[in-house]
Nucleic acid binder design. Structure first.
Length: 325
DNA sequence: CACGGCCCTTGGG
DNA sequence: CCCAAGGGCCGT
């Protein structure tokens, strides 16, 4: 594992020239299939893709969802009976989709049943919206997504990331009426300077993205994905070496892309719920590192090794459903 | 260690 | 028009 160094502000500034993206036709073989035996409790595709863990999926006119994962295009549609119809770039499109949705390694309804019996607040959130899974994202896209997510509503995060992808990522043509770009590689993203990123609406996040891309471009491409399987504390410490990455963002990356299912990202919503329900002794206090650790402990104590999944259902209720109300 | 000021912008009321 | 939005850093 390469050692990552937290950089101070880089003196070098790139030219800002955008990489050529004209002659990029993507010709991977498209595969298709169906995942049978899925219920709405196993997966609610629409809720999962709008739950604030991914930001570049769009709904097509035929109710299907179009997006990319790690440079592969995918089209997903969940039928009323729960079955999931998919199209994706090969090879092994079916395994690729199952991995993204974590269908093979997490029995979500079984976990939720236990949590409903144990926790009335989870039960209420689950009754309103079951099937909000935690995805296995591409670690690099997840990392930059949450670097852009500071103090921004989901709609704005989506706008920033679409801008970044279309400016610096590989064009992948049009699927179901939706124009797709791969999320830029760190090498491509390292071409962006702060000014260009600010022009895309990133605001104070522009410097953070520029510096992180510059660091990652000098490291092996698998640097972030190599954090999978590392102890949570180690992975978190590595991530927090980047300027702009604190505990919350590190936990988001760990949970949503590194299979760290017990990571608890403590944002304002989770903090409020914790103070109200799980850690009343923290009411009125500020979210210090000690308090942050205490909230994570309380969630893990209550929900166990997949506490991050419980957190996502509670977050969906507190943030997404409330925002729509 | 705890607290507050500050950073950018924009979607939505 | 105004506000709040899934933070983090840097001072005190």
């Amino acid at each position: 594992m390469a050692v990552l160094f937290r950089l101070s502000r880089r003196s070098y500034r790139g030219s800002g020239a955008k990489p050529g993206k004209s002659a990029a036709w993507y010709n991977a073989r498209v595969e298709s299939g169906c995942v049978a035996g899925l219920s709405r409790e196993d997966l609610d595709l629409a809720a999962t893709l709008t739950s604030g863990q991914v930001f570049r999926w769009t709904r097509a006119e035929d109710e299907s969802w179009i997006g990319t994962v790690g440079g592969r295009r995918a089209k997903l549609r969940q039928a009323d009976d729960g079955r999931l119809w998919w199209e994706a770039d090969g090879p092994d499109g079916g395994a690729f989709i199952r991995s993204f949705l974590r269908l093979d390694d997490v029995d979500f309804p079984a976990l939720a049943e236990g949590w409903c019996a144990r926790d009335a607040h989870f039960a209420e959130a689950w009754a309103r919206q079951p099937g909000v899974r935690v995805l296995r994202q591409d670690p690099a896209e997840c990392f930059f997504s949450f670097l852009c997510a500071s103090v921004a509503p989901i709609a704005r995060i989506s706008g920033m990331l679409r801008g970044v992808a279309s400016a610096y990522g590989q064009p992948l043509g049009c699927v179901g009426g939706v124009t797709l770009w791969a999320f830029p590689t760190t090498t491509q993203l390292a071409e962006a300077d702060e000014e260009a990123l600010r022009a895309l609406g990133l605001g104070f996040r522009a410097r953070r993205v520029e510096e992180a891309a510059g660091v990652l471009a000098e490291l092996p491409p698998e640097t972030l994905s190599a954090l999978r399987g590392r102890p949570h504390a180690d992975a978190k410490r590595e991530l927090m070496r980047f300027f702009g990455v604190g505990e919350k963002i590190a936990d988001c990356v760990a949970l949503f892309s590194l299979d760290q299912d017990d990571a608890i990202p403590v944002d304002t919503h989770v903090w409020r719920m914790a103070c109200a329900w799980y850690t009343p002794e923290l009411r009125g206090k500020s979210l210090t590192p000690a308090a942050y650790a205490r909230v994570g402990e309380a969630f893990r104590d209550r929900f166990g090794p997949f506490a991050g999944w419980a957190q996502q259902t509670l977050f969906y209720r507190a943030a997404v459903l409330r925002a729509r109300a």
